[in-house]
Computed example of a mutant assay.
Amino acid sequence: MTTILVLALDGMMDSCLAITLDTIRAAQSIQSRGGKGRSVRLLVAGHRKTVRGSGGMRLDVDMTFAEVMAGAVRPEWIVIPGLGLTSEEDIAARFAQKDALAAIELVKQAPHGTQLGAACSAVFLLAQAGLLAGRHATMTWWLAAVFRTRFPDVRLDETRMLVRDGPCLTAGSAYAQLDLTLALVADTMGTSVAHLCSRYLLIDQRPSQARYMVQSHTQHIDPTVVAAERWIDANLSNPISITQLAAALAVSPKTLSRRIDAAMGVSPVKFIQRRRLLHASHLIETTNKSIEAIAAEVGYQDATALRKLVKREFGMTPAALRG
């Protein structure tokens, strides 16, 4: 039997926990009707016997964190739903609380071979436990700068919905909990069950967070990066070189590269391309302008190049993006 253990912390996002439990239960139902595959047991653990979500949901758990660490269960998967953290201050305070400290200790002591999954701000918990050091990961895009400051040794790419590296599976913003749970279902019950589950629950495919990033969101630590965004956005229709951008910001190209990499985890070239694509996707979704006109407006002379980039980065064509 395969055991999936969900760690429920006080103040977690009710929706993230519900998504996890409902999706796994739906998959269990699909699997049982098929009569094939290894049985899967779903358990929920909390610091105390009863936990409360951020929206007031109350849940009586199957066991406590202390019981898990005492060997009451040996799970193949441990999953941490999104915690609903919204700022650097929230994060620092949350991980000083007893239940978070106990959860961190629990995942640190997980037996070798245990798979670990976390979505949204719960990815901070895996990083706080030291389990993401040197690994690739993703998380909610609008806390990415805070994450990089706290954990510079994690190879973060916040544009991705789902990243697996070794035993760790991380997911993007809150509703990427669906993507994480479906990946868990595929791992424990098979891809056919995961596919049927996604169809029954009408779960769409979202390979990237990039198209959901808000253009004006500038929650970066480094003001040079904020200034770079503004200058790029004001000059999108023109060719932009790294030397030109650095000169406009009164820094050297080397300094600019270092600051962009520290804040965003990408090269300046990729950073500029991302700004172009974010504006392009916004225009595609909110205007009737042709792809040729949009390409010119965001600095691509060739509309074909824009189409290819949209397909590669967002996982869909401009026509599908426009809906």
Rank of each mutant, 00 (worst) to 15 (best):
A210L: 08
V163S: 03
R41M: 12
H282C: 00
P253A: 07
A171V: 05
L249F: 06
V6F: 05
L156D: 02
L309W: 02
E297P: 00
D165N: 10
L162W: 07
W142A: 07
L21K: 12
T114V: 15
S252P: 00
G82V: 04
V269I: 08
C120T: 05
I91E: 12
M213K: 09
R135C: 02
T255A: 14
L17W: 10
S121E: 02
L180H: 10
D187Q: 08
M213Q: 09
T3L: 08
T255C: 05
S237V: 02
L43T: 10
F147N: 00
S267K: 06
R230A: 13
F314P: 00
A70W: 09
A45T: 12
Q109A: 15
L277W: 01
A137S: 10
D261M: 13
I91N: 01
I91K: 13
V40L: 14
H47K: 09
L21Q: 07
D179R: 09
A145E: 04
L83V: 11
M63Q: 10
T317Y: 08
S198V: 04
R155W: 07
P318S: 09
H282D: 08
A100M: 11
L196T: 14
T114Y: 09
T191K: 13
V40D: 03
L236H: 06
L256K: 08
D90Q: 10
F151S: 01
N235I: 03
I240V: 11
H136W: 10
G299Y: 05
R48Q: 14
A96P: 01
F151C: 01
A176K: 08
M12I: 14
T317R: 12
G37W: 11
A8I: 06
A137Q: 03
V154F: 07
W77T: 04
C197Q: 05
R164C: 13
G299N: 02
M316A: 13
E76I: 05
L278W: 01
A186I: 03
V298N: 02
H195T: 12
D187M: 01
M213A: 07
W142K: 10
V123T: 14
H195K: 11
I240N: 03
I30F: 09
I221H: 15
S267F: 01
A145Q: 03
L306M: 08
R160M: 07
E297T: 01
